[in-house]
Design a protein around this nucleic acid. Structure first.
Lengths: 154, 154
DNA sequence: CTACATGCAAAGGGTTTGCACGACA
DNA sequence: TGTCGTGCAAACCCTTTGCATGTAG
C-alpha cells in the first residue's frame, strides 16, 4: 500500500520514522529540506530548495541539498525527475505517439493508440494553462533488459 | 497539417526541401545524421548517433552532431527530449497524479483524474516490457507565463 | 569564389565526490 | 564519545561556444 498523506504533521511523522528505521540521523538540514519540499508545489530543482532554506540554514551548501534529496529518494520519501537518463534524446517520429521509457537502459519506445490520443482532459488542467501536447508516459523495464538480467543470473 | 510520413525516401525528400527552403546547406554530415535518425528507434542520444555514423564519417565530431540536431529541431524535423529543463526536480507527492509541464518556465503542475488513472493500456505496450508507472504528461504554457508575456508586451 | 559549416579545444552549467571538521544519538 | 553528516573545493559529465580551416552552392 502506498502512502497518500497530505497532512503536514502526518508527513513529518512518517519522515522521522522512516529515517530512524533506516538508522539515519534526523538532522536540522534534513528536516528543513523535507519541510521545504512539503510546502512547495511545482517540483522545485535543487537550487530552488537551496535558496528557500538558506535564510533558515545560512551555512548549508548546495551539495548537501543534492545528497539529502538523493537520500530521500532512496528512502522512497520523494520522487526525482530528470537526472538518471537526462541526456538529450532525439527522434524523427512526428506522428502522435506515446512513450514507454525503460528505467533500466533509458531506451524510449514509441507506441500508438487512438483511444489514448483522444482522452478527456479534466477542466482542472485548463485552469493551469494552454495545452500544446498530450502524451502518455509509461515507465517500466523493457523485455530486453529483463532478459539480460535473467541470463546474467546464472 | 502535420507530417506523418514513414517512407524513408519521402522523409529524405522532405529533409532536403526543408533545408534548401531555409537556405541551409545539405552537407554530407547533415544527411548522414538525418538518415541515422530515421533508421533508429529508441530515441538515441547524441553520442549514440555519433558512434553510429562514425564509420561513414570518420572525422565528424560530437559537437557537430549536437549542432546539427539542434538545427533539425529548429526546422521542425525532429523532436528533442530532455535538455531545456533537464535540471533534476523533486517532489513529495506520492499520490497517483499526472503532470502539466510548462515549456516556458519548466514548472511541473500536478493534477488528478480518476479516469486518467485507470486507462486501457494497449497490448502492444505489454510486448515492450513490464509496466511500473503510468502518467499523463501534458506540455503547454502555464497561465502565469502567459500573463507575464502579456504584461511585458506593452 | 564566398559565405556558411565543420573540427578542434576549451569553457560552461548542473551534479557528484573526497576529505577533514562538526554535530547528532 | 564514536560515528555519521556536513561544508568546502575540486572533479565529472554532457553540452555549448570561439576560432581558424574546409567545403557546398
Amino acid at each position: 500500500m502506498q502512502r497518500h498523506e497530505t497532512d503536514p504533521e502526518a508527513l513529518l511523522e512518517i519522515f522521522q520514522r522512516t529515517l530512524i528505521q533506516a538508522g539515519i540521523k534526523v538532522t536540522h538540514q534534513r528536516l528543513e529540506i523535507f519541510k521545504e519540499l512539503c510546502k512547495t508545489t511545482g517540483h522545485p530543482d535543487a537550487e530552488t530548495v537551496y535558496k528557500n532554506i538558506a535564510p533558515k540554514l545560512p551555512t548549508i551548501s548546495l551539495d548537501t541539498v543534492y545528497r539529502t534529496l538523493q537520500l530521500f529518494a532512496k528512502l522512497g520519501l520523494i520522487d526525482i525527475f530528470g537526472t538518471q537518463y537526462s541526456r538529450m534524446r532525439f527522434d524523427t517520429n512526428t506522428k502522435p505517439h506515446h512513450h514507454f521509457i525503460c528505467t533500466n537502459c533509458g531506451t524510449i519506445y514509441d507506441f500508438y493508440s487512438e483511444e489514448l490520443s483522444n482522452l478527456n482532459i479534466p477542466d482542472a488542467v485548463r485552469k493551469i494553462g494552454e495545452i500544446q501536447k498530450i502524451q502518455l508516459e509509461i515507465k517500466g523495464i523493457c523485455h530486453q533488459c529483463a532478459n539480460e538480467a535473467e541470463s546474467t543470473k546464472t
